[in-house]
Amino acid sequence: MTIREKGYHQWEGELQTPKTPWMPIFLSGIRMVFKRKFAKLLFITSCLPFVFFLIVIYISTRPELEMFKDAVKFLTDDRMVFDSIMSNGPTIFLLMLMGIFFGSDLISGDIQSRSFPLYFSRPLERKDYLLGKYAILMFYYLLFTLVPGLVLVLFKVIFTGKILFTPRFIAALILTPVLTSIFLASLTLVISSLSGNSKYSRIMLILLFYMATPVTAILSHAFSGQYFFLFGPTSTIKQMSSFLFDAKLAFKYPGWLSLALIVLVSIGSYFFLHRRIGKLEAQIESGN
């Protein structure tokens, strides 16, 4: 006799009260991202900076590769090495590309499909929903910043037998990728929450991530003010990283300003998103 013929039957299990109600959103999200078109290609490409730095670290330790020594001279200073690893242009570019491809529809997709009632008829709060969405992006961002960074520390120790071991360096090693990821995830989710059209979100993200830096550079030159670089995500991340690693700053303004800006934008974004989701939920509920 089939279940349908038997009629509705009860579930014998017991519902749990999970400590991390956002976990199913996170796990489902990372699976969905991995299934996306171009995901694997983008992930492989994102490993290239790691491979490059691995080769460079290796070269710097081999006496027989003397001819390359000048090119990898900066590797004598661990702070500069890891500042470059964490905030080099190609890595930031690829992280932004991940935000555009995988993050642009994280909230806008739910707006478009009007699926908030399905989420919020469950024992799920707005903060859980947001944490789930943040976690998806953070997972991939950290996978291509923090993880390669820590692996390269290991290789550096293996190849050279030494590494700078100061509290600031260790803190920078963790804080730089974490803050970069939170910052980029915040910007991505804010833009994604602005529209139910994922294409629109994608265009907005392209403008924000890739157009802001050239515009700030033009403004900086036009008005001879380095502070304009604060408004470019790439330059801000670069400056924050150099500040945290205590390396040479890329721009002529205090590094803590970038750090403060990133922290403020990230916190502000969370509160904005919290309100925004509430508003969207109410709009959908009222049928507007």
Binding site: L15, P18, P21, P24, G109, S113, L118, L124
Partner: peptide
């Protein structure tokens, strides 16, 4: 349990994945 009137199903998932996903959000292992 709530069955909304509006079309609210998340695209990009099959029915089994979507239903079990929402079950997990309800607190099911």
């Amino acid at each position: 349990g709530y069955m909304p009137e509006s079309d609210c199903l998340m695209p990009g998932m099959d029915a089994v994945t979507l239903t079990s996903y929402l079950g997990e959000l309800s607190g099911m292992p």
